[in-house]
Design a binder for these strands. Structure first.
Lengths: 257, 257
DNA sequence: CGCCCCGTTGAGGAGAGTCAATGGCTGTGG
DNA sequence: CCACAGCCATTGACTCTCCTCAACGGGGCG
């Protein structure tokens, strides 16, 4: 479960003992191959998922087959709030690389939140961050040019990946096709291809084999795409909110079966 | 607080006594004039807000002054999860009509969640719905034409407004300028004007004075804009999840000061 | 070897943006 | 009571980003 710990570690530092209820969580480990569905629109989800390895996408298919990727699930990401409310999924989740995923029954997960203030607080932050990433995605698609969108997305993925794995790599291996990037950013694959070619020519990125992307000059790309990490809320809580987190956790008592 | 009750009533039916902890909540009532900020980007929020009357927008301003409206806050809407984690707001909230808003200290609010399974469950649903609305906004902007976007947004606002106020009006008074609609949908005011004119000519909507919009044929507009209410999750929970909601509530114990 | 998926590139088209002028409505002040 | 300012919607003309259709080529894999 250490990716999750690493990711949360960007926000709070917990002692070994504080992680105990989490480590002892009754869980399953499932492997999904690239292309497998973790969740299909319409499913009733009763589990919380934590990505251990691999990338997955959350997306909606439209009536005519078009696809909109809503966001990306990276190692360390937890989902889904939805499962705690016994609602049907309104979108699908698919692995885009081989994924190792921890699957935890919603009620077991909620029991854990109840038992630990610091874990509840950490989970709460994770949910807040996820929602914030959604809002940023709206801004990105609604008001930015193709080049800004792509640069901004690459920087977000890089930042999130580094944050979760601790590997501060210059070179990010992005397992995304042009079609994936297009469907995430409201563009067409053709235009993504053209724009990324231009970005290569402008020495903003370089690409190796197998989706290996290197961001040549991070500051320059960040400036051009107006990328600012504020929305990722990468900083510690006040102490007070740990107490509040546990309260929130406990207020969820009734959500378990 | 009855708007909130009405809105939640679409989802769960609670008895008078179940609402008690909510009714007794220590709160302030604040009035904001059109144009007033409820929250500014950068603020540290320590309150939960519930809109009683009026409309507000949540938006981000870009470096160059462009604006992206992330979503609309209508009567009955509650925000903000963020406040429970003591994080800085990464966006602003502004009243676009005169708004009456209930302001509740985060820790007081969390105490209430802890004390009642059914209220925690109701609040949880509200948070899930809000996130779902964000995802739908991404799909709308990313993959739909101008006419679809506008039709879809109008139908969502209509449905949400009716759900919260109980007034099943044909005529929805939308206090939005073309610039507001444009900033929400990733368009320009000029193009919104043109598109809405075309929609009037096509007998999809009619407009009266002061932003009064009537959706002439709801089914037809829904078909054309591919609007489906599924993502609003307007249906009852299973009984089990009430218990789980309370658990989640309690797990938040530590979040209160 | 041949297929399929993917990225690339070209040509042409369309939807949405920009710039700018006009006119209505509202509110304010002389 | 009228004049004027300010805001907003509308419309026209022109531009540009991004889309569509299509062809080609490379790499992985059976």
């Amino acid at each position: 479960m250490s990716v999750f710990k690493k990711r949360l570690g960007q926000y709070v530092t917990l002692g070994e003992d504080e992680w105990l209820p989490f480590d002892e969580l009754d869980h399953q480990e499932q492997v999904f191959l690239a292309g497998d569905d973790l969740v299909q629109a319409g499913d009733e989800i009763r589990h919380v998922f934590i990505v251990k390895e691999g990338w997955a996408i959350r997306y909606r298919l439209l009536e005519d087959g078009r696809r909109q990727i809503v966001n990306f699930m990276l190692p360390g990401d937890v989902f889904d709030l939805q499962s705690l409310a016994d609602l049907k999924a309104d979108h699908s989740l698919t692995a885009i690389t081989e994924c190792k995923v921890l699957v935890i029954a919603s009620n077991v997960f909620v029991d854990m939140l109840q038992s630990s203030a610091s874990l509840a607080s950490a989970f709460w932050w994770s949910a807040v961050q996820e929602e914030s990433i959604l809002r940023e995605q709206i801004v990105r698609i609604g008001r930015r040019s193709a080049r800004e969108r792509i640069g901004h997305l690459l920087l977000e993925l890089h930042r999130r990946f580094v944050g979760a794995t601790g590997m501060d790599v210059e070179r990010l291996t992005v397992p995304l096709t042009r079609a994936d990037i297009a469907d995430a950013l409201g563009l067409t694959p053709v235009h993504v291809s053209r724009t990324m070619s231009a970005m290569r020519r402008a020495d903003l990125i370089t690409e190796g084999r197998g989706g290996e992307i290197t961001i040549v000059d991070r500051d320059k790309l960040a400036r051009l795409s107006h990328f600012d990490t504020d929305y990722l809320h990468l900083k510690k809580l006040h102490i007070a909110s740990d107490r509040r987190a546990q309260q929130i956790g406990e207020s969820h008592r009734g959500l378990a079966d």
